Simulated assay, not measured.
Amino acid sequence: MSAQSSSTGRFPTAVYGERLRRAAELTAAAGLDALLITPGPDLRYLLGSRADSFERLTCLVVPADGSAASVVVPRLELAALGDSATAELGLSVRDWVDGVDPYALVGSLLPTPSRTAVAEAMPALHVIPLTAALGAPPVLATGVLRELRMLKDEAEIEALRRAGAAIDRVHARMGQWLRAGRTEAEVAADIAVAIVEEGHTGAEFIIVGSGPHGADPHHEVSDRVIESGDIVVIDIGGPVEPGYNSDSTRTYSLGEPSPEIAEQFAVLERAQRAAVDAVRPGVTAESVDAAARDVLAAAGLAEVFVHRTGHGIGLSVHEEPYIVAGNRIELAEGMAFSIEPGIYFRGRWGARIEDIVVVTADGCESMNLRPHGLTVLGG
């Protein structure tokens, strides 16, 4: 099967059919009767649907017994299913109009009482009336959806490769925009345009952390004027069709860095490399975090690494698995996540190096191929 998305902006229909089959299988294994999914990344994963969530209920009902899934949808929002695989999969569509109880409609598709699992993003606006209609409170579908979405298939991995290559092309152009005398906001505006030019459907996030702002890992942009001698953290990403995200950070120096900064950045490079080298099937997520942290600790930089080493990525920028101390999940082939240690000196400067990697049979493949060193641009 082709890994490429179709002209509809989604994967071939068979991909979604297999995902629904697996979702039903995992739901049954969890001792549940059905999986209930409202609009968001989980619905896009299972159907390719980009439907939005409004006050009217749209809900995919996946029975655990393997019978056909159904979609309950307001009649006035039927068009939102047009770009999904719903019709090609032959799913039953139960549309409803104002004045009809959609929760009772969902309940009619299942036994009563029904043991169901709902996506974490389902609003209480829907969970509470569904509880009444189903005769029992639902549980979170976290376990089922985690196992589905953490392990990327070849179609997803190819989308992540394209996303990684696209954001690499943006970083390769950074010298066009990043220079002293411009504000962070001006640089970010140029980056946003380039993110789309290089193949993304939009810019999901842009961090331009110059000078002391680089010491704030979640700084976005400001009107600060970038100065000669600044160290600048550029963390950028966005989705490519059919919705898979890039996320890559590189750090730039406007002029030659001081020996102290160059030395500390070299340690960060080694830490990032150590974490990447630690990735392989069977090791724990926390061991990858420790690989980066131990290198920084040995150089006396443990206290300035203030966040986890990585996060999963796919249809969401942040999803499981999380590469963090305490996460004993064993990595498996197909898992995709960031490796992004950073060092942050409050009020002075900061740096971060980030690649997206996918676990392979004997290690990992990096989606990002730009140089990791401190890139010097004209100050």
Rank of each mutant, 00 (worst) to 15 (best):
Leu134Lys: 01
His372Lys: 04
Ala274Arg: 02
Pro39Glu: 07
Val225Met: 05
Pro212Ser: 04
Val304Ile: 14
Leu91Met: 11
Gly373Tyr: 13
Thr309Ile: 14
Gly17Ser: 04
Ala69Lys: 03
Gly342Val: 07
Gly314Glu: 06
Arg149Lys: 15
Pro341Asp: 08
Ser222His: 10
Phe54Ala: 11
Arg224Ser: 07
Pro102Ser: 04
Pro138Arg: 00
Glu227Cys: 05
Ala361Ile: 03
Arg44Lys: 15
Met174Lys: 00
Glu333Ala: 14
Leu32Gln: 06
Val233Tyr: 07
Val225Leu: 04
Ala278Asn: 00
Gln4Met: 02
Trp349Glu: 05
Val317Glu: 11
Leu145Thr: 09
Asp153Asn: 14
Arg250Gly: 10
Thr13Leu: 08
Gly99Met: 08
Val187Thr: 01
Thr183His: 06
Thr251Phe: 10
Glu147Trp: 03
Met122Ala: 09
Ile207Tyr: 12
Gly238Thr: 02
Leu148Lys: 01
Gly300Phe: 12
Gly214Ala: 07
Thr309His: 00
Arg169Ile: 02
Thr112Ser: 15
Val118Thr: 08
Ala141Asp: 07
Ser222Thr: 13
Ala87Asn: 04
Val295Leu: 03
Ala124Arg: 12
Phe305Tyr: 13
Ala189Leu: 08
Ala51Ile: 12
Met367Asp: 12
Gly107Ser: 09
Ala332Arg: 15
Ile231Phe: 11
Thr249Asp: 11
Ala185His: 11
Leu36Glu: 09
Gly17His: 08
Ala79Thr: 10
Thr86Phe: 08
Ala332Gly: 05
Ala141Phe: 08
Gly300Leu: 06
Ala155Trp: 11
Leu32Gly: 00
Arg348Cys: 03
Val187Cys: 07
Ala119Ser: 13
Tyr252Lys: 00
Val61Gly: 05
Glu197Pro: 05
Leu374Thr: 04
Val232Pro: 03
Gly48Gln: 03
Ala361Arg: 14
Ile261Ser: 03
